[in-house]
Amino acid sequence: MSDSGSDSVHSLYANHHAWLHGWLKRKLGCSFEAADLAHDTYVRLIASRRFPQPDESRAWLMQIAKGLVVDLYRHRQIEAAFRDSLALMPEDRWPSTEQQAIAIETLVEIDAVLASLPARVREAFLLSRFDGLTYSEIAVRLKVSVASVRKYMLRAALACFATLAA
């Protein structure tokens, strides 16, 4: 990072960290989680290599932090759904704690990939994989051709595979 980038981060941190931590603490109700997300906010800012003008600093930091809060809540929802599905199985068939953590992280990554896809692509994939609809049924539901459904499914599958391969 250049000296000006370092100076920008130092200045942002010195001038806004306490405010950001306080805002996150009010939002999350937990000082420890707020500290983690405040840290992650600066890490994301540094990784982007884009720094706001001084009068835009809080807006930028809040925008990044809001995204991290959304990610945290989505992660919690996925983890809760995974735990709920485990509860339906006999405990002796549960994966190890390590395997559970890997599965949850993989589900979080796939969720992020699906969220990044266009709505029709995502919907076609979910209708096929989770509702068990055929391509013809999906085409009728989405009011598109079966060929379009095939393209949507290929796009979604490639995105998921790329995530799993990374």
Rank of each mutant, 00 (worst) to 15 (best):
M1A: 13
M1W: 03
S4F: 09
S4H: 09
S4N: 09
S6V: 08
D7C: 11
S8K: 04
S8H: 09
V9E: 07
V9L: 12
V9T: 11
H10F: 09
H10A: 12
A14P: 02
A14S: 06
H16N: 09
H17C: 15
A18N: 06
A18L: 14
W19Y: 12
W19A: 15
W19H: 04
L20Y: 04
L20H: 03
H21S: 14
H21P: 15
K25M: 09
K27R: 10
L28I: 01
L28F: 06
G29K: 00
G29Y: 04
S31G: 10
F32V: 05
E33D: 10
A34K: 00
A35W: 14
D36C: 13
D40S: 04
T41W: 12
Y42H: 15
V43L: 13
V43E: 14
R44H: 14
L45N: 04
I46D: 07
A47R: 07
A47W: 06
R49W: 00
P52S: 06
P54D: 12
E56D: 04
S57G: 07
R58S: 05
R58C: 03
A59G: 06
W60N: 10
W60Q: 15
L61D: 07
M62Y: 06
M62V: 12
Q63H: 07
Q63R: 13
A65E: 06
K66I: 13
V69C: 15
V70C: 06
V70P: 10
D71A: 10
L72T: 00
L72C: 03
Y73P: 00
Y73M: 03
H75Y: 13
R76Y: 12
R76P: 02
E79H: 04
R83T: 08
D84W: 06
S85Y: 12
L86W: 01
A87I: 02
A87M: 11
M89F: 09
M89E: 15
D92I: 01
R93I: 06
W94V: 00
P95S: 02
P95G: 08
S96Q: 12
S96V: 12
T97E: 15
E98D: 10
A101K: 09
A101D: 13
A101F: 08
A101R: 05
I102E: 14
I102W: 15
A103P: 00
A103K: 01
A103C: 12
E105P: 00
V108F: 00
E109N: 01
A112N: 05
V113Q: 10
L117E: 05
P118N: 06
A119M: 06
R122L: 03
E123V: 08
A124R: 05
F125A: 08
L127I: 09
F130R: 05
F130P: 12
D131E: 06
D131C: 08
G132Y: 01
T134L: 05
Y135I: 08
E137D: 09
E137H: 12
E137W: 13
V140W: 11
L142E: 08
K143E: 14
K143R: 11
S145N: 05
V146T: 12
V146K: 02
V146H: 03
S148Q: 14
V149R: 02
V149G: 03
V149C: 03
V149W: 09
R150Q: 07
K151T: 11
Y152S: 03
M153R: 07
L154D: 02
R155W: 11
R155H: 05
A156S: 13
A156G: 05
A157N: 11
F161L: 07
A162H: 08
T163A: 11
L164I: 09
A166I: 07
